[in-house]
Design a protein around this nucleic acid. Structure first.
Lengths: 211, 211
DNA sequence: CAATTATGTTGATTTAAATCAATAAGTTTG
DNA sequence: CAAACTTATTGATTTAAATCAACATAATTG
């Protein structure tokens, strides 16, 4: 992802680096708190969410991903919260060290800017969906995000509670449940135990796109 | 805004710089098109909007503001459209020249990253509002944006049509009209001709915050 | 393993806002 | 300046989804 890093650059970022282990459900950082470290997610999936009058899950981050937000060059605050969905190992790099490399290495600076932009854009596009699509489209979109981006398979263990799935869709848990039921009856998805399987990918894609 | 620029930096950006004049209503650039220039808005207000199944106005840009989006370091595409609300003069800087300075001057790079992050964050926060607030709160928020950020006065000429105001609030024009009527009856705002005046700023702020 | 608590499901009701439809007020132009 | 057209306003109706309330299932714990 950051192909431009030299040995020296890496040495700088390793100076104060440390690793932390989180248990499922534990908070990694909280919206509004000080943005002191860039986090490289080594193992385990992470719930990235914005807290407002209700929570909105913007994405499920998976290894190996750099967790960095717009606050790093604004006011050094976090603009979302992150919590572990599974056992997580995360590598913390001091913002000061990170910024030092940013200044040393212009190509890295470009890559970082692209990374921040790219994450911001994905979040924005998610929020656009929440505004434009209705419930079935939103649930379809969430199920596709999980299949394509998070698990990489059509069948996966639903590690989110119904409430969390609702937060990912930006609707109430009752609405999600009803739509899932419909999808099941229409043979688009299957669910057994905690597993969900997308049976008709084309159909669910279509529902997601039509909104 | 970009205090770090040296004479040499400016010379690079001036190499291919040119100015364009737009009449009210004219399109400055279109979502999806190639992001070839960073734009410095010299005079006139600009409507920044995202086109989807319906338009959403993300903000009204005013002079002197740098118009730059996340696409510059992703795929060199525009992720929104911009059109002139008034007569506009805009200064075009080639993306190549801009990026050259970004690489030359690390402090400028930081400032640019902050600028892109900051714009992205504002847009995101607007979209969050659209999701969480209901119509009166959204209309209040839009009126405040115009008063505080765009015009800097409590009384201003409403240069947006009702449809555009609706697009700024993320609701239908009928809904906007009804809420404006309510605000008027409650003595929160006044309108004569094309002018709007906020009479009770505290109240409208409260409505905006409560949602 | 029974009891308690949390999570999930279903149906009934309410509600906010969109849509639909008709009319009014402004603008533009031949 | 009247006709044609666009934009704004108002009221009636529909609709999607939230809320509310009851119950079921699963998970946890003494």
């Amino acid at each position: 992802m950051f192909s431009s890093l030299t040995e020296e650059d890496l040495a700088i970022m390793n100076r104060n680096r440390f690793v932390v282990n989180y248990k499922p459900g534990e908070l990694i950082y909280k919206q509004g708190s000080s943005f002191t470290h860039v986090i490289s997610l080594s193992t385990g999936k992470v719930k990235m969410y914005i807290e407002g009058s209700r929570d909105i899950i913007i994405k499920i981050a998976k290894p190996v991903e750099l967790i960095i937000g717009p606050g790093i060059y604004i006011d050094q605050k976090h603009y979302n919260s992150a919590s572990a969905l599974e056992e997580v190992n995360a590598c913390f790099i001091e913002v000061g060290d990170f910024k030092e490399v940013f200044r040393r290495n212009p190509r890295f600076a470009e890559e970082v800017t692209r990374e921040i932009s790219s994450k911001g854009l994905s979040t924005l596009q998610k929020m656009m969906s929440l505004n434009l699509k209705q419930t079935p489209g939103l649930v379809a979109e969430a199920l596709i995000h999980l299949a394509d981006d998070v698990f990489g398979t059509m069948r996966y263990k639903m590690i989110l509670s119904r409430q969390e799935l609702a937060d990912l869709c930006g609707v109430t848990k009752e609405s999600v449940i009803r739509v899932l039921k419909d999808f099941k009856h229409e043979g688009i998805i299957k669910s057994e135990g905690h597993y969900i399987e997308i049976l008709d990918y084309n159909m669910i894609k279509k529902i997601s796109q039509l909104g």
